[in-house]
């Protein structure tokens, strides 16, 4: 299988890339790792007229902490995230389970975020940790909270002429922990169900901030807001997490498909929420 014909524009700078995208209009697409886009082009379900390759733009390949945030550049590959000392909690937990080792060497975290595949892992992690997507357009840079960025399945609120140049993920100041539990049928598979958990504890050991988000069980990656609200201010406990798990299971809207029944997927949400929150709490308590 082979892609249909397209023009390739190799951008040297962010502004070149943004300009090329503005010029290309609807037929233009950015190419970073290409690990989702190129297979779609080979299957001929995607056929951009112009591809704007951003891989040669310098200065976008760092993953580092500054000013209380973890900054992830647009060319940071999944493998770089997995190997990074700067990453934390649910990010560390999720990185090894994205795709497979070779795809992780090439695919980028930002590209995956921008792809907005509801079966993709990263947007749940970003929802749980409260991250911003940093977009650059002709008018400059703007942060977009991840909840506003994800607009629907495979659609974001990014303007036509905007490029995702990075992610900004708040680094918890105090004790924190996270988990990403993913049920996949095999390595390289999308999640059948996955749950991202993020907990921050205050000095008393009570939950100061909670993040919980789910992959593959809703039309988009979904933050379980009521479960998060329930947990804040409470001491971590199995009972609390079981209650949060019920809220997560109720918020999930899975469908019957070849991966399994909706009832079972909801059960996995329940189980993985309990287990994920327990793991996050344990990590936070030990941090």
């Amino acid at each position: 299988m082979f892609p249909s014909r397209f023009d390739l524009i190799v951008a040297e700078t962010i502004s070149d890339a943004v300009q090329a995208k503005a010029d290309a209009g609807e037929g233009g697409r950015f190419l970073a790792g290409g690990q989702s886009l190129i297979p779609m082009m080979k299957m001929r379900v995607a056929f951009p007229e112009k591809l704007i390759d951003i891989n040669r733009i310098s200065g976008m390949d760092a993953i580092e902490r500054s000013n209380g945030h973890l900054h992830v550049g647009a060319l940071v590959r999944h493998a770089d995230v997995a190997a990074s000392d700067a990453a934390f909690g649910a990010i560390v937990a999720a990185a090894p389970w994205v795709a497979d080792p070779l795809v992780r060497n090439r695919g980028t975290m930002c590209g995956s975020v921008a792809h907005c595949d509801p079966e993709g892992d990263w947007n749940s992690v970003l929802l749980a940790t409260g991250a911003d997507v940093v977009a650059r357009g002709p008018g400059g840079e703007r942060p977009i909270p991840i909840g506003e960025f994800v607009d629907g399945a495979f659609t974001s609120s990014l303007a036509e002429d905007e490029l995702v140049v990075g992610l900004r993920i708040p680094v918890p100041a105090g004790r924190s922990g996270g988990a990403y539990l993913k049920l996949e049928r095999k390595i390289g598979d999308y999640a059948t169900v996955a749950v991202a958990s993020h907990l921050e504890l205050d000095d008393s050991g009570a939950i100061a901030a909670a993040g919980l988000a789910m992959t593959s069980v809703n039309p988009i990656n979904t933050k379980v807001v009521d479960a998060e609200a329930l947990m804040v201010g409470q001491q971590p406990s199995a009972e609390l997490f079981a209650e949060a798990a019920e809220l997560a299971a109720a918020a999930a809207e899975p469908r019957d498909d070849v991966r399994g029944t909706a009832a079972w997927k909801r059960q996995v949400v329940r189980t993985y929420t309990k287990r994920g929150l327990a793991a996050a709490a344990q990590q936070a308590e030990g941090s």
Binding site: G34, D53, N55, A79, V103, R106
Partner: peptide, 13 residues
């Protein structure tokens, strides 16, 4: 130096 799947990389890249 990194293993990648060459079916999912453009020659131009």
């Amino acid at each position: 130096g990194r293993p990648v799947k060459s079916c999912t990389v453009l020659a131009a890249q």
